[in-house]
Design a protein around this nucleic acid. Structure first.
Lengths: 127, 127
DNA sequence: TAACTGTACTACATAAACTAATACGGTTAG
DNA sequence: CTAACCGTATTAGTTTATGTAGTACAGTTA
């Protein structure tokens, strides 16, 4: 199923994350399809289950899959994937920008004001 | 001149970078003003000159100072308008990103948390 | 209850980051 | 021109972070 480079500079779990991302984005793995269990895949690749676990957690954080204890890990609904993935990226960019802006003198109050304004625009004042 | 926290989790050179940034941005150090030499400051702070050097290099890379071998390190010309312009640009980018992120589910609380975190990093927990 | 599932905790090896010791090369006052 | 300043490169040692593995715990289902 996978070809891993065990002695690559790129961590194994990262390779797994990328492989799965590709498969999921290209719809090779359908929504709600079950991924191999951490143990199964680990045995198959002759690596430690915890490495698979780390990859799966990363995929989950990034919104590509969801895991249920005792049941398994599954491909997340596409829209949610996209949004979560995008959001994660956005958060990183946001943090960089915010750091820079705060350093240049942007105040917390200004940012909050900005957010309030945006929320009004986007959500029309709900919440 | 400086108060360093030698056993902070934040690297010494990073603390120095931040202190100098603040001083330069707030015009406490004027344009072309000479910074203490790496050895002088090192002796004063009882740390290694190389640590100062690392801080100075970082400041140079980020455009805050310039160094001349054999002469010293000096505050780089900082045009206030440039900063303001940068800040304005950043604000626009910020607004776009924030709009997108909030649309995707980022909450106001998350952003505020993010800001607090950044402020702590930038100011290094003084007060 | 047995055989699956994900997950938490710990430990260990390795890689990266940080700081220091030393030496080298440019500038300038005397 | 040399002594006393400057920044900088190289190297090494120490600490910290990262990646992986071993083991044990906890939920699910037939």
């Amino acid at each position: 199923m996978f070809e891993l480079d065990l002695r690559s500079r790129e961590p194994i779990y990262q390779q797994l994350v990328n492989k799965f991302k590709t498969l999921i984005i290209n719809q090779v793995l359908a929504t709600d399809e079950k991924l191999p269990s951490v143990r199964t895949l680990a045995q198959q690749l002759t690596i430690n289950p915890n490495t698979i676990q780390k990859a799966y957690r990363e995929l989950e954080v990034q919104g590509y899959i969801y895991s249920i204890k005792g049941k398994g890990s599954f491909v997340a609904p596409i829209i949610e994937q996209e949004n979560q993935a995008t959001l994660t990226t956005l958060k990183e960019e946001l943090k960089k920008l915010l750091s820079e802006a705060i350093f240049l003198g942007l105040t917390k109050q200004e940012v909050i004001k900005m957010i309030d304004q945006i929320i009004v625009e986007v959500e029309g004042g709900e919440k």
